[in-house]
Design a protein around this nucleic acid. Structure first.
Lengths: 120, 120
DNA sequence: CCGAATCCACAACGATACTG
DNA sequence: CAGTATCGTTGTGGATTCGG
């Protein structure tokens, strides 16, 4: 028999997977890490997240906003100014990203060695 | 003047970004989470990481192996058996993935609400 | 059973141009 | 300055097949 709890769990699972798919990508991570606890404009992010295109930045900012990870503040000035800040859930994810940065620093030598050995 | 340290740092940075690009993707995360501290065969992973195709699993396993995050053990039996296990760096990254799983559980309600509000 | 290679549909991405 | 739309190219990922 399928209970209400079962369907709730199934729904939560599929939602969790969806969130994972959205968020577990390099641009999202780099944007979150770049924002940190600062508030930055679109163009500042564009400059600091290096290698990101206008389009990718826009797309990922929309996605992060949709998931409630960043807050988007529009100042109706001329020219317009738009600022982005991590929300509380966003800061929560930032801890994960930080942990990954720490991991990279810690194991970068091992990884480089593994690669050399694998490639050769 | 560009010192040796500068070039070393630049190299480490670009390497770090490369590692980020490799590893910060959903399949890698799901594989690592599924492996945990177990040793699993290809077909077991195929069954447990749900939705993953043969090809994606192969590609990501190669990538993880190249970066030294998993160990691949081949038993030359008929039919062949291949087993995968997280290495120490792999276990290190697992901590990051775990932290993201915890984050998802903690904020899933907020995220769902944010999405509804954004979509409507 | 595992993995590589092929083919192909479609999504991702960069560049560009246009709007408020 | 920020955002959207369009277009052309590249790349990703699934299905299938063949080989060890």
């Amino acid at each position: 028999m399928v209970t209400k709890q079962d369907t709730d769990l199934a729904r939560a699972d599929s939602l969790a997977r969806e969130i994972f798919s959205d968020v577990a990508n390099k641009w999202a991570f780099l944007i979150i890490e770049t924002l940190g606890d600062r508030t930055l404009r679109f163009s500042q992010l564009r400059n600091e997240v290096d290698g990101i295109s206008h389009k990718m930045l826009t797309q990922n900012l929309r996605m992060l906003e949709r998931n409630g990870l960043i807050e988007r503040e529009v100042y109706p000035t001329v020219p317009p100014r738009v600022e982005y800040t991590l929300t509380e859930p966003g800061q929560g994810l930032r801890a994960t990203v930080d942990s990954m940065c720490g991991w990279t620093r810690r194991f970068i030598e091992d990884i480089e060695a593994a690669r050399r050995s694998f490639d050769g």
